[in-house]
Amino acid sequence: MTIVVGYVPKPEGRAALVAALEEADLRGEPLHVLNTSKGDAYSDPGYATEEDIAEVEALLEESGVPYELEHRLGDRAGGAADILEAVERLSASLVVIGIRRRTPTGKLLFGSDAQTVLLQAPCQVLAVKA
């Protein structure tokens, strides 16, 4: 069994990563860190840079938890679909996501990846507040 965590280089993403590490340590399960981008814009603040990835790797190495890091361009459906796909593929026991406050209009226009994962994940979901 694996724990999947959706990482973004933002406070909520880092909070999710830290919580996921604790959980993985506790359960003795490996961690699968996922960061993807739709890649349809010039810049995507949610897509980790080389520096972000180095930082994440350092954190993971230090914890000693066995891990995998998946950093790639996802399909055109976007973040939530990539997370759900990874959960399915790895038959994960738990998925960890970071959440933040959103306005209703923002959610209507851009959707909410967190909400999609919460409602559609076939396993437990741990939602961490930044």
Partner: peptide
């Protein structure tokens, strides 16, 4: 050009 879902593009 690849915008998904279609209803958001239309909106």
């Amino acid at each position: 050009l690849g915008a998904r879902p279609w209803w958001r593009a239309l909106l």
